[in-house]
């Protein structure tokens, strides 16, 4: 079972309290009607699916109920960090340095 740190509750808790909410930092277009079919495909369906550090959203469903973002390595399943929704994307180099 994963142990996940909720940045709002500031506690590290079991995975069972959380729900996964897919890739993070996907921004909906300001003006949807201006989007082409290719842009809609990209927004709706195409995902990074990276093998390695992955920016993703989680929700503390059985806790504060809030969404937050995380960086998790999809090979080891280790969390590199979690941060509040709306915060800028953390720099990957500084995160992986801290791991070594």
């Amino acid at each position: 079972m994963l142990l996940i740190h909720c940045p709002y509750c500031n506690e590290t808790l079991p995975e069972a309290e959380f729900t996964y909410a897919g890739q993070a930092h996907i921004v909906r277009a300001e003006d949807p009607s201006s989007q082409s079919d290719d842009q809609w495909e990209e927004f709706l369906f195409i995902r990074a699916n990276v093998k390695g550090p992955h920016y993703e959203r989680w929700r503390h469903f059985h806790g504060c109920g809030r969404y937050f973002n995380a960086v998790r390595d999809t090979v080891s399943d280790k969390f590199l960090t979690t941060y509040e929704a709306g915060a800028p994307r953390p720099d990957l180099a500084s995160l992986t340095e801290g791991q070594k």
Partner: peptide, 13 residues
Amino acid sequence: DQYTSYSQRGGLP
């Protein structure tokens, strides 16, 4: 599992 992963393990829950 609910999260994407390339680890061929998966969680016990």
